[in-house]
Design a protein around this nucleic acid. Sequence first.
RNA 1: GCUCGGUUAGCUCAGUGGUAGAGCAUUGCAUUGACAUUGCAAGGGUCAGAGGUUCAAAUCCUCUACCGAGCACCA
Length: 916
Amino acid sequence: MLWHHVGLMSQDLDTAGLAKAYEPISVEEKWYQAWIDGKCFAGDPSSEKDGYSIVIPPPNVTGILHLGHVLNNTIQDVLARRARMQGKEVMWLPGTDHAGIATQTKVERELKKATGESRRDMGREAFLKKVWDWKDEHGGIIIKQLKRLGCSCDWDRERFTMDEDYTHWVSHTFSDLFKKGMIYRGKRMVNWCPVSLTALSDEEVIMKPQQSTLYFMKYEFVDAPGEYLEISTTRPETLMGDVAVAVNPKDERFTKAIGRKVRRPFPEAEIPVIADDHVDVEFGTGALKITPAHDKADFEIGVRHDLEVIDCLTADGKINCEDVPELHGLDRFAARKIAAQMLEDKGLLIRAEDYANNVGFSERADVPIEPRISMQWFLRYPEVERTAAAVESNEITFRPERWSKTFAHWMSNIQDWCISRQLWWGHQIPVWYRKDKSTELQNAESLDLADMQSGDIHVGTEPPADAENWVRDEDVLDTWFSSWLWPFATMAKQGEESDLLKKFYPTTDLVTGPDILFFWVARMIMAGYSERDELPFKNVFFTSLIRDGKGRKMSKSLGNSPDPIEIMDKYGSDGLRFTLMRIAPLGGDIRFVSKEEEGELVCPQVEEGRNFANKIYNACRFRQMSGGETTGELDVSALKPYHINLLAKLDALEVNLDKAYADYKFNEVCNLLYEFLWNEFCDLFLEAVKGDLKDTAADADRQATLMVFDTVMSRYFLLLHPFMPHLTEELSLRMGYISEGEFVMQTQLPKDSVLAGYDPTEAQKVAQSIYDAAGRLRNVKAEYNVATRRDVTFIAKTSVDYLEAESPVLCQLAGAGEIQIDPNYEAPKGTPVAVTSVGEMYMPLAGLIDVEAEKARLDKEIEKNALELKKSTNKLSNEKFVANAKPEVVQVERDRLAEWEAKASQLAEMRAALDA
RNA sequence: GCUCGGUUAGCUCAGUGGUAGAGCAUUGCAUUGACAUUGCAAGGGUCAGAGGUUCAAAUCCUCUACCGAGCACCA
């Protein structure tokens, strides 16, 4: 094997000229460039291999990387890299989302700050140009950051939801669904954002608990002055829109009121008392004022009773009621207080109570939304039943599985989707109105397929031929109306059966957060069935939610979201990747601890990941300081038990990894990798074979150990690669496991096990009994406070044949000076003993221990042992246990009992000896 | 209100019926030659509570409490 020095970039070099610690930054940068130059990420649609594909959940084009992205994309990268190494042709398709409201709001805000202009001052065309400029300037940031993380996306195929091809798909889908009668336009009650000045879908409204005031007021009966009907409301400012008061028909208190009229105080009007089942008898006074224009439920009641709709708010949430000059033009919240005051002045306010209720907030602008009647486009969701069934039957699997229940619940209560937005940044609705009828059409109560068939409107991907006679609908589509096409719209132009689609669609895995289950995942399945007649992906993996050290959601406003780039610069992207994957359980949340110490960002969990990288690096450094090239083939039959044990453990590791991967348990994969390297490889194996690498060692021993080291480490790097791609490339090259120009990421995982055909049982028994014995000897030493002495002699009362040969290793591991073997040894009473799997090992006390302290310790020990002994005895004297438990379980218990008994007599002897 | 999670060491969490585990933190000890980003050890648990099933429960069932999420909401 070739042999290179590991890392030469540090100031802190040891005598061999090797850096003492792994320094990730330059290594990571170098390898990412090498992968790009080597075109390692390209997915080839003409490949013979099986296809494997993932589409990235497109981040907002102006977004900045946060830890959620890091987790999400690391999982995808792990899946992609693993699939490549398993011989699949992998396509990980990246891109970004135009993120309608988010981006437009951001640019508008910047514009306001810079020039004081609003988008309306500029006009649509000029504003859109500004947004495109902004996108070009800031759009690349998150992509660069993903590259820093090591993501193996096929960057040549990067897509954007407003690319020309993509836009064509959006228009096509709209017109397709319109022609199927699934899309219609109508005046409906929608969620209106008074800040963004657009309609929102139900999913974009976040219910938040609020501390409000419930006002109790009274309306006077018209036919009985001095007699009042008491009403409670949280929104007195919409009083001008009241057109009725409703009571429950079953409510006997109000039976006599129904059908009569009460006086609305301002602007003064007579409004009827009506009966409707919707009214809750228990709530407030039991009488509900009806404001159809400003409440969804009231609107429905209004429809049932054919009531007038009086809109008394402007689009931006100000009062619009010239008849009440005190309120006209005021903001809705300011007006609320004035309206209450006006009621009080008129003697109509009874009292005001503090009241906790839920108010819908706009997801983006974070202000209370306003239920508002407006003209919007709606979609009746297509393929609802097929979509629900696909998840129900596990044709599409959800992980964790429980999300499928949430999904089913949502699917069964699905409402039409309001898809139009009163924004400029986005896909303009592909509907044109005949110019001469445009006003009439745009104000029509409803529009649907029939209007297209009559030739009044044009719906399609292209404008009508005589475009000058037509006016295009001004609205744009909800961002998700483009995102829901992502799995296939990224792969081909509309109407084209590309190689890419053939090879890579449907995609294999989708990795995303559960927060966009309805926004995105559900809709993609529906779009897949509707537009491609096929499901868009086979597996959905929902990532954990990342919280801060205090369990709070990470958010910009809390400032508790550390910058992943800063973390990577400090600990390396491999360290961060490994850490996150190791602490993210399937389904649960993650707590990510970060703190500021002396002006520096400290992430203790990531330190572990960084330390792990360093541990591996140093194991390799040790290898290189201990010898160079090896020659010849590995001859398993000539190896020591420690070698064979390690090889067997590697084989077991590969089997266990396969299992964990099959369940998408990445944290388990990481733990297996971590434990193997740190415990099995470094703490046990390397310590056991250290003697073989000393200058004085025999050349054959050195060669064997080096060869096993290289065999195991080179394979281990393949297994670790998906999590720590940069480190594994670097060390594999430096160690000569791959040659210049080769890549670990393109190396196939070996199909055969290392020990194929060789039975390691006997060798493993030897190695493991020595490891076990070493641990027990160390325990005894520690108990007697001689842990640090390396000159302790043990006397082994045993006839185990291999002990003599292995005793140097045992000494090395246990920190013992010498192990004498004497099967007939008669220990003086009270000599401490370790009962090991290679026999009893006595540690004669050189009279150096503190007798009183030892007595106390022994007494404690005796008590503890007696308790265990009693537990075991009780269990075994239980006939039902012996009869019903599995034989091996009973046997384990018997062995245990024997152990307690032996120990009890030993302890008693030792105690007695001390007394003497 | 409905539906799903969760509650295990000081902290973060593993643990699908058979001796309660890991990492971090704490404490003690160690250091010339892989690694102080290290090694060896120690202390630390009524597995949220109550009941049930079982020879045996952290684990299965029921209820309760608290925490979290989603959905629906009463003005």
